[in-house]
């Protein structure tokens, strides 16, 4: 019976969706699951305890010492020694990838990042996009377990809670030896949906016309419950922050619906969004490359179409 260890993540009082996605992957790969989390929230801890874990460990954060790759990797290494998991699973999130890499470097355990698919077998194969999605690579771990992987958010379906409830054991990481420490989090404005977790994204490119017109996309996002994306061209123009950029040098996103407004569809942009379930393109140029990947397209001016689209979507929702 294969054992797994999952590095769960919470945001405030809530478990992140990726935590439930990791549970799905853990159940695909093994049966007994140890969870590790680092949260100061009892509510988040209680939710984690209900996921169906055999054991739950909380790496307790301190007031101004919230995370340190060196210290956390050292604690995980000890836990791996004690629990002997076959797979150690992280989310491909900012801290997940950071800790997975430091742990792999510190222990020499084999590491496959950003996994988007798993093919069962003995041993299973792990699939991940390469070269910004132009190629799909299939990998296997060599040698004895354990093995480390990170999974891309929004790919695996989130698992439902099941099994008995466990309460968390607290472990105090030894921050004294850590020389790089997360000291504070500047929390995002409420209501902003993260691009990587969004189910609907509306993105703007140079065809939006000017910086002020992004307001139209933010209105849309606000009312429909979407996140706002952007092409690199408009980020480099300074119309919107880099945090919104989608593509090879921006974020890779996976929404159910991606609406590209005034975006030509350069290969580096497609790299970040072509795995979206449904792509809509709005562009004045009927031969824009974006139409080649779009499921539905409208040839026309996005400044005129986006407000109408918002109105019609709201009407259809009643």
């Amino acid at each position: 019976m294969a054992k797994t260890l999952v590095y769960l993540e919470a945001k405030g009082d809530e478990l992140k969706k990726i935590s439930r996605e990791m549970m799905t992957v853990a159940r695909m790969l093994g049966e007994s699951i140890t969870g590790v989390i680092s949260t100061g929230s009892d509510t988040a801890l209680a939710s984690a305890g209900k996921l169906g874990l055999g054991k739950l460990v909380n790496l307790a954060p301190e007031d101004s010492r919230l995370y340190a790759a060196e210290a956390f990797a050292a604690e995980l290494a000890k836990l791996i020694e004690a629990e002997a998991p076959d797979y150690i699973i992280f989310g491909q999130t900012n801290l997940g990838r950071d800790l997975a890499a430091r742990l792999a470097a510190a222990t020499g355990i084999g590491y496959i990042s950003d996994v988007t698919g798993i093919e069962p077998g003995e041993p299973p194969a792990f699939v991940k996009p390469l070269y910004a999605g132009k190629i799909i690579g299939k990998f296997r771990f060599k040698g004895e377990p354990p093995h480390i992987l990170t999974i891309r958010p929004n790919i695996f379906s989130p698992a439902e809670a099941e099994g008995a409830e466990v309460s968390a054991e607290t472990v105090q990481p030894d921050y004294s030896s850590a020389r790089s420490v997360l000291t504070s989090i500047a929390e995002k404005a409420a209501g902003m949906i993260d691009l990587r977790e969004a189910t609907v994204i509306i993105s703007g490119g140079r065809g939006i016309g000017e910086a002020a017109n992004f307001q139209m996309l933010f209105d849309f996002a606000d009312k429909v419950g979407a996140a706002v994306g952007a092409s690199r061209a408009v980020v480099d123009e300074g119309w919107i922050e880099h945090a919104h950029q989608v593509g090879q040098t921006g974020k890779t996103v996976n929404p159910t619906l991606y609406i590209a407004c005034g975006i030509s569809g350069a290969i580096q942009h497609l790299a970040g969004m072509q795995t979206s379930k449904c792509i809509v393109a709005i562009n004045t140029n009927e031969s824009a490359p974006i139409f080649k990947v779009a499921d539905y397209g409208i040839v026309g001016d996005c400044k005129e179409i986006v407000p109408l689209l918002l109105e019609e979507i709201l009407k259809s929702r009643g």
């Binding site: 132009k134 190629i135 799909i136 690579g137 990947v293 499921d295 539905y296 397209g297």
Partner: peptide
């Protein structure tokens, strides 16, 4: 190396989509 690349493939191409036609923008 503890990781082996078994195979690299091209991703499946997206099905061609369609342009929505109509007299007026609305």
């Amino acid at each position: 190396s503890k990781v082996e690349e078994v195979q690299a493939m091209h991703p499946p191409a997206r099905e061609p989509g369609r342009i929505i036609e109509g007299e007026e923008v609305l």
